[in-house]
Amino acid sequence: MDRTPANDTWFQGKAARSIHEDQLKKVELFNGRAAMIGFVIGVITEGLTGQGILHQIGLGPLVDGYATCSVQMLPFCF
Rank of each mutant, 00 (worst) to 15 (best):
8 D>S: 13
70 S>G: 04
3 R>S: 14
29 L>H: 05
58 G>I: 02
54 L>P: 02
15 A>P: 00
78 F>P: 08
52 G>P: 01
52 G>K: 02
10 W>C: 00
28 E>T: 00
50 G>I: 03
70 S>N: 09
18 S>W: 02
18 S>V: 04
3 R>W: 14
58 G>M: 02
13 G>C: 07
35 A>H: 01
3 R>I: 15
50 G>P: 00
33 R>Q: 10
78 F>H: 12
34 A>W: 00
42 G>N: 11
2 D>S: 05
11 F>V: 08
39 F>Q: 14
64 D>I: 09
2 D>W: 02
71 V>R: 15
73 M>Q: 14
17 R>A: 10
2 D>M: 00
35 A>D: 08
9 T>M: 15
47 G>F: 04
20 H>A: 14
37 I>R: 10
55 H>E: 13
29 L>C: 05
49 T>C: 07
35 A>S: 06
15 A>N: 10
47 G>E: 06
54 L>E: 08
65 G>Q: 10
27 V>G: 02
4 T>C: 03
12 Q>Y: 03
60 G>R: 01
26 K>F: 01
61 P>Q: 05
65 G>H: 07
49 T>S: 12
17 R>W: 02
42 G>W: 03
43 V>H: 05
20 H>D: 11
44 I>M: 12
3 R>N: 15
24 L>Q: 10
35 A>N: 03
70 S>H: 08
58 G>H: 01
68 T>C: 05
45 T>K: 15
25 K>E: 06
66 Y>I: 15
22 D>M: 08
34 A>D: 06
60 G>D: 01
72 Q>E: 11
54 L>I: 06
3 R>V: 15
57 I>P: 02
35 A>M: 03
31 N>D: 10
3 R>H: 15
76 F>C: 09
4 T>D: 05
73 M>E: 15
19 I>T: 05
41 I>S: 10
71 V>G: 09
64 D>C: 05
23 Q>L: 06
65 G>E: 12
7 N>S: 14
13 G>R: 11
46 E>P: 04
16 A>Q: 12
4 T>Q: 03
26 K>C: 00
7 N>I: 13
6 A>V: 08
12 Q>M: 09
25 K>R: 08
30 F>V: 11
26 K>R: 05
69 C>G: 03
68 T>M: 11
73 M>K: 12
36 M>E: 09
25 K>Y: 04
43 V>Q: 13
